[in-house]
């Protein structure tokens, strides 16, 4: 059933050369992403992009939270999430099924990705970096990098604490 829900974009985002090992259960990546509450005169929820990097492989966008319901399709300001725009955003077609989402209000958000769904690839053992970048209209920008090693079996954890536009971000990858 999952296959029927894959869009062209999702297939492209999955990329090539990474195969789920035979018999392996689908990996899941659980994240918490905290968006701090800010005391400012004009507040808009930040645009947030979450993507996975591995040396020598194209970046994989797992999620992008933006103003996707607005009149212009919300894509006009996506380049302001500038590292993500360069790494992945500018070559994506949006909205992408399982990737695009609405902006989120301040608070700690739990997000899960399952290998083979949305933008989440099956992970071969190796070194990865999860990147979370937030950019806020009339506000600032912050990027957090969470390097982790996936050995195929053991749970991999990582965390990073934001200082301005992001709060605590935690990651846990397991089979």
């Amino acid at each position: 059933m999952t296959q029927f829900r894959l869009t062209g974009m999702t297939v492209a985002a999955l990329g090539t050369g990474v195969l789920l090992p035979a018999g392996a259960a689908a990996q899941t990546m659980d994240l918490t992403v905290a968006i701090p509450r800010l005391s400012v005169a004009e507040y808009h929820n930040p645009y947030v992009a979450i993507w996975l990097q591995q040396d020598g492989a194209p970046a994989r966008t797992l999620a992008v939270w933006y103003d996707l319901d607005n009149r212009e399709g919300g894509t006009k300001w996506l380049n302001e999430v500038r590292q993500w725009w360069r790494a992945s955003g500018r070559s994506l077609r949006l909205p992408a099924s399982g990737v695009s989402g609405a902006t989120r209000a301040p608070g700690s958000h739990r997000v899960s990705f399952t290998a083979g769904r949305g933008g989440m690839p099956a992970l071969a053992p190796g070194q990865y970096t999860l990147v979370v970048e937030a950019s806020r209209e009339v506000g600032g920008r912050e990027q957090l990098r969470l390097p982790f090693t996936w050995n195929g079996t053991a749970v991999a954890n990582a965390r990073a604490q934001g200082r301005s536009e992001l709060g605590l971000v935690t990651l846990s990858v397991k089979r």
Binding site: T75, K76, W77
Partner: peptide
Amino acid sequence: TVVSGENN
């Protein structure tokens, strides 16, 4: 010099 979306 770098813009996203369409019809900008």
